[in-house]
Design a protein around this nucleic acid. Structure first.
Length: 434
DNA sequence: TTTTGAGTTGTTCGA
DNA sequence: GTCGAACAACTCAAA
């Protein structure tokens, strides 16, 4: 009890290997007690059968088992507000330093600031590390030091920097014996934290050389579903972003790698411009007079718009927690432009349903589709929900997979006429932004 | 400071 | 059926 320890705080980096903060903690001067806090500030907003919570819980249990079986140690589980938990921990243990990895979301940066302040008042160190991206914050900026707000020049500089950048993989195996040697640290079941096991499962990722090679050609066709399913694993850290980037670079096709760079682009945007989580990046787009019709929104959510590809996407989302990227753009455009519903409503719905929900990417892409964001589509670029079918689901394979009443009498009529909705959108946007 | 070229993913219209 | 221009100017990045 009186022996000093260091703490490693797992958050969205749920893996034992190539975890930068964990590696640094293990190399430190005291035995390491790993902890995880089920943060009630976040969990209180989620449905009790949330698939992501189930996934986090199962992942932690499996990590805990590994650490127990192989090293006679454990991972301590807590439930509550992080600051309150730390107040208890400092009474219980003699803590020298708390190690953790950077988290760039507005809530997380504020939370970490408060924790750091508290720990330092107790003479405890708070060391944080870059782990979930290759380049963070100010590491890829313009020559004058300002952040990029256009993707292509950001990506070029990212690649330039990457040539010079000698990243290493942090193999923790040799150091895991520096974990605390007691295995009776507190554990929590799903019901302890107020949740039940979800009927939905987080899909394992599938990144093969073939997938990467064919990515550019096939990724736009939802029926093929030639996508990596990496999202949730990058979100919760069950895959190492460094190892994944290495894989992407080993293939000639750059499209896959560019997608990984998009992730970092949006992360640095949210870090530099935290207000864009709920304010338009281009301020005048907040003048748009959204119709925000509740009944329309419900039809969209339920996949009953009468436009089969839109409905297929929404039904896939509701049923599985995933939607093919091509279809995400279409349903987003349809919500904002055909229905004139605020992108924040769509953003919130995706945040609730998507297993791969990531604030930076979700907000960034919704603002893109609404026209209000960085490097956004011009507002007059309105997806045609019918011609998108001919382009990307010609044989209606994807539609039939998700819309079982397709081509039957019970399938709903189109809730809006495309031409009328398009003109209404152009007028409304024009009034707001020009 | 000024200038210049360029900007994720589209649609429609008319020749 | 195919193709280029218009959509509407604007903002960004870099020289």
């Amino acid at each position: 009890m009186n022996q000093p320890i260091n703490i490693f705080w797992f958050r969205r980096d749920l893996r034992l290997d190539d975890n930068v903060g964990f590696y640094e903690a293990l190399k430190g001067d005291c035995p390491v007690m790993p902890i995880f806090i089920f943060d009630t500030e976040i969990l209180d907003k989620l449905p009790e059968d949330d698939a992501r919570v189930t996934f986090i819980h199962e992942t932690l249990q499996s990590m805990r088992q590994t650490v127990q079986d192989e090293y006679g140690s454990s991972i301590a589980m807590y439930n509550g507000k992080p600051l309150e938990i730390y107040k208890k921990l400092v009474d219980e243990y003699e803590i020298k330093t708390v190690y953790t990895n950077h988290d760039y979301e507005p809530y997380a940066t504020q939370r970490d600031k408060e924790i750091k302040h508290f720990l330092e008042s107790k003479n405890i160190g708070f060391k944080t590390f870059k782990d979930q991206v290759i380049f963070e914050k100010d590491e890829v900026v313009k020559k004058d030091g300002d952040p990029y707000v256009v993707y292509t020049p950001y990506m070029r500089t990212w690649k330039e920097n990457f040539k010079e950048y000698n990243f290493k993989i942090h193999y923790t195996n040799d150091y895991l014996n520096n974990l605390v040697d007691h295995s009776r640290l507190p554990n929590l079941s799903l019901s302890d934290i107020g949740f039940t096991k979800s009927s939905q499962e987080i899909t394992p990722y599938d990144v093969t050389p073939t997938l990467i090679q064919e990515y550019e050609e096939t990724r736009n066709f939802p029926a093929k579903d030639n996508t990596s399913r990496l999202g949730p694993h990058l979100r919760f850290g069950t895959v190492s972003p460094r190892k994944m980037m290495k894989k992407a670079m080993n293939e000639d096709n750059e499209t896959f790698m560019k997608e990984l760079i998009w992730r970092e682009f949006f992360m640095q945007i949210l870090w530099h411009f935290p207000h864009t989580k709920d304010k338009a990046f281009k301020a005048k787009y907040d003048r748009i007079e959204w119709r925000n019709n509740e009944d329309d929104f419900k039809k969209w959510c339920d996949g009953k718009t009468g436009y089969p590809l839109v409905d297929a996407g929404m039904r896939q989302l509701n049923k599985t927690g995933f939607m093919h990227n091509r279809v995400r753009m279409l349903v987003g455009s349809f919500l904002c432009k055909h229905l004139l519903i605020d992108w924040r409503w769509g953003e919130a719905y995706f945040a609730e349903k998507l297993h791969d929900y990531e604030m930076a990417s979700n907000v960034g892409n919704w603002q893109w589709v609404a026209g209000s964001g960085v490097d956004a589509a011009p507002y007059f670029r309105i997806f045609n929900p019918t011609t998108q079918i001919d382009k990307f689901d010609k044989n209606r394979v994807y539609i039939k997979q998700w819309v079982d009443d397709f081509d039957t009498d019970s399938y709903p009529d189109k809730m809006v006429d495309h031409k009328e909705a398009r003109e209404r959108c152009l007028e409304t946007y024009k009034a707001a932004v020009s």
